[in-house]
Structure formats: structure tokens, C-alpha cells
Design a protein around this nucleic acid. Structure first.
Lengths: 346, 346
DNA sequence: CGCCCGTGGTAAAACGATTTACGAACTAGC
DNA sequence: GCTAGTTCGTAAATCGTTTTACCACGGGCG
């Protein structure tokens, strides 16, 4: 190699701090001090550095700087499914939080598959994220054999609430079940079907537990009608259709997930029952389309903004003090009373 | 400093390639050769390296390696709004493509604001992404004064189709307008309102152009009924309500965006008109909730998977050959004939 | 005048991986 | 037996930034 500094042939690579230093007639260290500002720099050199950086269109190389500094100011976000409005909502809130705090987020989705989740987390670790916000695929997150032993600071959000080895932030799902059911009881309903997908997750079990609690408190402990709908919209539809072939039909349905809400509506249409005249429904979650749906759905909804804000600050605290005791936050839910649940008719 | 290598007090930092090398009794270079595999390594040293890496839980530091290699194997993705199902759908497809090709994606959202978009792109550049997939906030993407002069290879997706200085991949929006309108014409409709938000974007103008083309081809050039609804659901509702106060009412509505679809439905409800008996509707986009909506909506939908797959491969080609001529891909759309558009009654 | 201190600049050492250049050991061919 | 060629290992350079260590220069003070 002949020259003292050979540029890649295309000459397209971005300018480095050394280029800026050369142009400004100072050393790279001085340029760094101007741009980061940890030490004083005389105002004339400061000015010439700024000019040079501007002229060259210099952009600090994030790889290099975080390699040297030992942190990336990046938070990894792991969600099951971005096309689920609940999670994309959380992600947008987190993105806003991050922007405010000078962080960036790196979003991956796991498809609710623990293996994929584990692989994705591996690659977030390789990227040396400073922290992790995780809506876990399973409640026993981290228990799988091949799982990385040491994780960066992490907060479990929405799922796996109360996990032994992590901070957790999730909705008060017992309250969600309780309030949705209580509302129906107050309207005079006594035969309330509780539609859930299965009992694989603590948040689902909690919602059912809230349903039971409301029944019990009102003296209807024997009137439990748990409908296990599975994880798809159509499985839920089938389960509700079956429930309606029983001798005594429920007069109300409490759907404990977003997908089961869709399944319940499908079943109601298929059975040709009038909503809300012949059947009451308490839905789960809120979504834009509900504003065009008739009747306007009474629903229990999670507070995405509070979930996101709280989990963010718990994570930041955790990063600051890695050895503090774990926190378990429960965020209240919102019951929006609209039109799909009506007083029992007969 | 007394020792030869001082560890950070907490002792928590991840093991480096040097730690692995020491434990395996070889040099860092050999470890690298085992892990990346560009050169042969004797099988006994290979084995001991693998063992050591396993035991230490070694994860290659992505910062360091991409600093040295000069590429990050990361693609930056810029979308206006992740909570829009269309974009989150694209993102999920891209994520799958990336995983297959050994890439990762870094998603940011712009809120459809060119300033935020520009800042987000700056930070993607600082992170030295190898390429960019952009659903631009404006058709004149890159024209703003403070905009980075040199961008990594980039493909414009969905928006700004036909841009002079970039590859573009988008739906055939003229066809979208044409097919939606033609379907209504074939059903006998002659008074078709075309509901759009405004003419700020080429994709919106193209859809309207398709509407006009269908009208013209059928000899109804004079019967144009363009309704400018603005960018919110409620503005669209109001616009349609106003249109229905005119002496001759339209018998059909063609909604050219997802949000205007919602607005149109709201208006139809508010006006107490029966859908599809008294009014036909062709909606835009498909979404899960439509399966529980009555009537099932006839709709023009974009092919997210093809959009994602094609833009991905155009980007990969662009990265491979930066000086090839620009490509302008148009992806066909799908018209799903369902129940909300019926033959005109009278 | 001599000393100390604050200011601001530079050179060089990190950070952790990859890759180049070089050399040792061994094999093969004549 | 000697040379050329292959294989595989190591040391050192490198990527671009931050940070440490050191030095030069002035000003204030005794």
C-alpha cells in the first residue's frame, strides 16, 4: 500500500472524526470534546470544529462510540405479535419515552414462540442493549434449558406478572375480570359465560379468577360458566355456539381477551341472536373499529399508556440500581360502559 | 492500577473473545476463526474453543464486529405509524425476511412528520444501517433543507412511488381506484362518491385517478363525485353526511383509504341508511375485525406480503449494486367481492 | 523571581472483534 | 537431503470513538 491512508475505492464511506480533525486543524480528541462537551475547548477551535463537522456532514459512528463507552443507550423490546394493536400501542408509547430520554428501542417479535423468543433475545444481547422490555411468550420466562444465564436488566410487561426473578408490570387482571363481571351482575344477569382461551398464562387465569370472585361475592358461586375457547377466533366462536345449545342459555358473555371478543361476536351472528337485546356482551380491549360497530361495545380495556410509562421507568430504575429488590406493579384497568351490555330483559 | 487486567468492580460484563481464547489455550485470532470459520482450524483446538465459549456463555459483541467489518447487517425501517395495521403488517413481513437472510431490522416511526422522520433517519445513519426501507412522510422525500446528503441504499415503499432518486415499490394505486369503481359500475351504480382524504400524496391521487378512469371508460365522465374528507375518521364522516344532503344522493361510496372507510361507515349509521340495501360501499384494506362486521365488506386491499417481499429484494439488490438504475415496482391489488356492494336497487 | 494552578491541546491507550502478515511444523516431490 | 508447498497458529494492525496522561502556556501570589 502506497499512500498513508487508503480510502475504499468507491470513496463513499462516511467521514470520521479524524477527517473532521484534519479539516479543522486540531486533534481528534479535541473534536470529541467539542461534540460531547466533557471538557472546555477554546471558542475559536470550537467554532472551526463545528464548521468542519457541518461541511463534511459528519455523523458520529454509534458502533464505535458505544464500543468505547460500554453502553448503547438502546433498549430491546420483545413482543409476541406486532400486528396486535395492544402491543403495537405499547411499542409506540415506549418509542416516545425513549426519544424523550435519549434512548432508542430495538423491537423484535417472538410469535409467542419461546424458541424464537430466545433466539431474538440472544441477538439483542449480542447488540448489547442496555435493558430489555419483554412481553414474554411463557410465564416461566427464562426457565428453558438453553436460555442465556445472564441477561441485561429486564422488565416483564403484561405477561408473567409476579415472576420470581424479574420486575413485572402488568394490568390488574383480577380487577379486569371482577369489574367486567360485576357490571353484568349489576344489570341483573345471572347466567354469565366467561369466555377465555385457556389457562396457560397467569394473566388469563387472573381474569377468570376475577370473574369467580365477582360471582362468589354476589352469592352466585354455583353459577360459573367457564367457556374454554382456545387461541383462535374461530375456536372461540365454536365454543360459544356449543354453550348456546345447552338447555339453559347464558344471558351474557364476558370475553376475557381481544380474540375471544371477535369469536363471541361471530357466534352471536351465526346463532342469529340480537345483540344487545337477547344477549349482553362485555368485550376486552378497545380499538378504533369499535366506533363503527353496532352496538358500541361495553368493554374492559387495559391502559396502554400507563403500562408503557410505568414499565419504562421501572426499567430505567433497574438499570440505575441493578441490585434493588424486584418490583411488581399492577396497573388499574378501565371499564367503559357503552351499549352492548343491557339489563337482563325477562 | 495493580493487576494486569482490571475488571469493572461488579464483575458483570460479558466475556470477550480474549477470555474464551485464554480458557481454550489459544489466541483470539483462532477463536475468531472457529466462530466465523473463514480459515481451517485443527479439530482439537476447534473443540476446546467451542467448549470454552459454551462454558463462558460467550456472545460476540456486535458493536465490535461490525465496527471492524464495516457493515452491520441491519436494515432500518421507517414507517409513519406502527399502530396502523397496514404498516405493522409490513414490518412483520420484513422481520421474517430479515431473519431468513441473517439480517435484523431496526424500526422507527415518524408520525408522518417530516422533521421527526429526518431525525429518526439521522439516528439510523449514526447506527450505520446497511440499508433503509422507508414509507415516507412526504412525496418529496429528501427535499427538506437539513436532510442528510448521503443516505445508505434506500427503497421507498408504499408512499412516494416513482420518486426520482430512489427505488420505489408500491401498490398499483391507479388499479385500486379503477377496480373498486368498476365493480360498482358493473353493479349498475351511476352516482358513486369517491371518498379521499386529500391530494397531498401520490398514492391518494392515483386512487382518485383510477376512479376517474373507470368513470370515463364507461361514459360517466360528467358524474364525478369527489368527496374530500381530510385525514381523520370524523372529518370523513362529516364530509359524507354533507354529500348526502345534496339533492341527488349517491347510491354508492368508494372509500380510498382505511380511515375514510371508517368515516363512511360512521356516516351511514348516523344518516340511518341501510348498508347494503340503500347504499353500497367498497372499503379499503382488510382487517380482522371485518370478519365480525355486518355486512361483510367488499374491499380493495393491498398485498402486504408482496409489497414487503419485493421491497426487501429490491433493497438487497441495491445494496449489492449501488449504481444500477432505479427500479419502480407496482404491486397488483386485490378486490375481494363480499356483501357491502350490491346491485343498484331502483 | 520562582512556584503553583487552571486551561486547553495532543498523543496514545483503550473498547472487542476481524484480518493480515508472518513463521513453525509438517508433507511431498525430486 | 533439500526445496517448495500446505496447514494452522500467533502477534499485531485495524475499525472510529472516548478518555487518560501528559505537556505547554499564562497568570496570580508570596
Amino acid at each position: 500500500m502506497g499512500g498513508k491512508r487508503r480510502k475504499p475505492p468507491a470513496g463513499r464511506s462516511s467521514p470520521t472524526i479524524r477527517d473532521v480533525a484534519r479539516r479543522a486543524g486540531v486533534s481528534p480528541g479535541t473534536v470529541s470534546n467539542v461534540l460531547i462537551g466533557v471538557r472546555g475547548v477554546r471558542s475559536d477551535s470550537r467554532l472551526s470544529v463545528m464548521k468542519a463537522a457541518e461541511a463534511l456532514g459528519y455523523k458520529s459512528n454509534h458502533m464505535a462510540s458505544s464500543l468505547r463507552r460500554g453502553h448503547t443507550r438502546t433498549i430491546g423490546v420483545v413482543v409476541p405479535d406486532l400486528s396486535n394493536e395492544f402491543f403495537s400501542g405499547l411499542v409506540m408509547h415506549w418509542e416516545a419515552q425513549a426519544a424523550k430520554a435519549g434512548y432508542e428501542i430495538l423491537v423484535v417479535s417472538s410469535g409467542d414462540n419461546p424458541d424464537i423468543e430466545s433466539r431474538r433475545i440472544q441477538s439483542l444481547i449480542a447488540r448489547r442493549v442496555d435493558g430489555l422490555l419483554i412481553a414474554a411468550a411463557r410465564d416461566d420466562f427464562g426457565a428453558a434449558p438453553g436460555f442465556p444465564v445472564t441477561l441485561p436488566p429486564a422488565v416483564l410487561v403484561d405477561r408473567a406478572s409476579g415472576h420470581k426473578r424479574f420486575d413485572t408490570v402488568s394490568s390488574d387482571n383480577v380487577a379486569a375480570g371482577y369489574e367486567g363481571t360485576s357490571h353484568l351482575i349489576k344489570l341483573g344477569h345471572r347466567d354469565i359465560a366467561c369466555l377465555t382461551s385457556d389457562d396457560s398464562h397467569i394473566h388469563l387465569r387472573d381474569r377468570v379468577q376475577g370473574y369467580r370472585k365477582a360471582l362468589k361475592e354476589n352469592g352466585f358461586a354455583g353459577r360459573e360458566r367457564l367457556v374454554i375457547g382456545g387461541r383462535s377466533v374461530d375456536a372461540c366462536r365454536v365454543a360459544i355456539e356449543r354453550e348456546f345449545r345447552l338447555p339453559t342459555r347464558p344471558t351474557a358473555i364476558f370475553a376475557t381477551t381481544f380474540f375471544s371478543t371477535l369469536g363471541a361476536i361471530k357466534a352471536i351472528h351465526a346463532l342469529n341472536i340480537a345483540l344487545p337485546k337477547d344477549i349482553s356482551l362485555v368485550a376486552f380491549e378497545h380499538s378504533e373499529w369499535m366506533t363503527v360497530f353496532q352496538p358500541y361495545l361495553t368493554a374492559v380495556a387495559q391502559r396502554r399508556d400507563e403500562l408503557a410509562a410505568n414499565s419504562w421507568s421501572v426499567l430505567i430504575d433497574r438499570i440505575a440500581s441493578p441490585h434493588a429488590t424486584f418490583r411488581r406493579l399492577k396497573i388499574p384497568i378501565t371499564l367503559s360502559i357503552r351499549e352492548s351490555a343491557q339489563p337482563v330483559s325477562d
